[in-house]
């Protein structure tokens, strides 16, 4: 008993101040939102698109990166001979519409997620219960969602909780490309969630199929099957990116 109290004192209070205080520091090598300089592409160069493993980068009259497909591997930045593509430290990436994830050359950011519509916000703004459905993928997204429940992040202080049954949930948080073998389970889980409900697609897999894009054994994400209210890109998204998305959706971050 005394040892437990001593241990408790040694470990101290570790819940971060964010969002009231500063965000926790990310590594200086953290790859957040990419930035595409407005000019500088050598004539006819398509090196970035050729290097991209998932076809997230395309080059027509200008360079575009679909953050929904992006694995944030920076293979495009390494391939770029003119440093047109770089990865910034900006962790804020969550959006409400799929097309908002398409970052165009010269654009300085994506239109970050707005809060839920007033009626839903009054229902879910201070208490949002989510059922997580893992539907393919590699379990890294799940791991960094779980991190939000640790004492450092303490997601519960925002009234957001993960619940054991879809019947207790206000919505689903989906990870993975939705494999054929998880389709039925996802449909049933969605049907078991009472209306009104929201759907969050978390990670490149759930948004676009990610590394498994166009595999016959999987769908290209949850978007093909369900209406999605929030897209949180990344492979996997940093816990800070996930939290930022959830707090924007519930109207707690508006800048």
């Amino acid at each position: 008993m005394f040892k437990m109290i001593a241990a408790r004192l040694k470990q101290g209070h570790r819940t971060m101040k964010y969002p009231g205080g500063p965000a926790p520091e990310t590594s200086d090598r953290f790859r957040g939102r990419p930035s595409i300089a407005a000019t500088g592409c050598p004539e006819g160069c398509r090196a970035c698109a050729g290097a991209c493993p998932t076809g997230a980068v395309s080059v027509t009259d200008r360079v575009r990166i679909d953050l929904g497909k992006c694995l944030f591997c920076a293979d495009c930045a390494s391939a770029c001979p003119a440093q047109v593509i770089t990865f910034t430290q900006d962790h804020r990436l969550a959006v409400r519409n799929r097309q908002d994830l398409c970052l165009e050359q010269g654009q300085t950011g994506v239109p970050l997620a707005a809060a839920l519509e007033p009626k839903l916000l009054s229902l879910f703004g201070r208490s949002l219960k989510l059922r997580q459905v893992s539907a393919g993928g590699c379990n890294a997204c799940e791991a960094d969602v779980n991190v939000l429940n640790t004492v450092g992040w303490d997601l519960g202080r925002f009234g957001i909780q993960f619940v054991a049954s879809p019947r207790h949930a206000d919505g689903l948080l989906i990870t993975g490309p939705v494999t054929r073998n998880m389709e039925l389970a996802l449909e049933k889980t969605y049907a078991a969630t009472p209306e009104p409900k929201i759907v969050i697609a978390l990670g490149a897999c759930a948004i676009s199929g990610g590394p498994y894009l166009d595999h016959s054994q999987a769908n290209n994400g949850a978007t093909a099957l369900l209406p999605v209210d929030l897209f949180i890109p990344g492979c996997p998204p940093h816990p800070l990116t996930i939290l930022d998305g959830l707090l924007r959706l519930t109207g707690r971050i508006t800048d």
Partner: peptide, 17 residues
């Protein structure tokens, strides 16, 4: 349930993915 066909997709590689 998590089967996404990686072994098959590796055939013909290595490729960027």
């Amino acid at each position: 349930y998590q089967h996404r066909g990686v072994e098959q997709a590796m055939r013909g590689g290595p490729h960027p993915r």
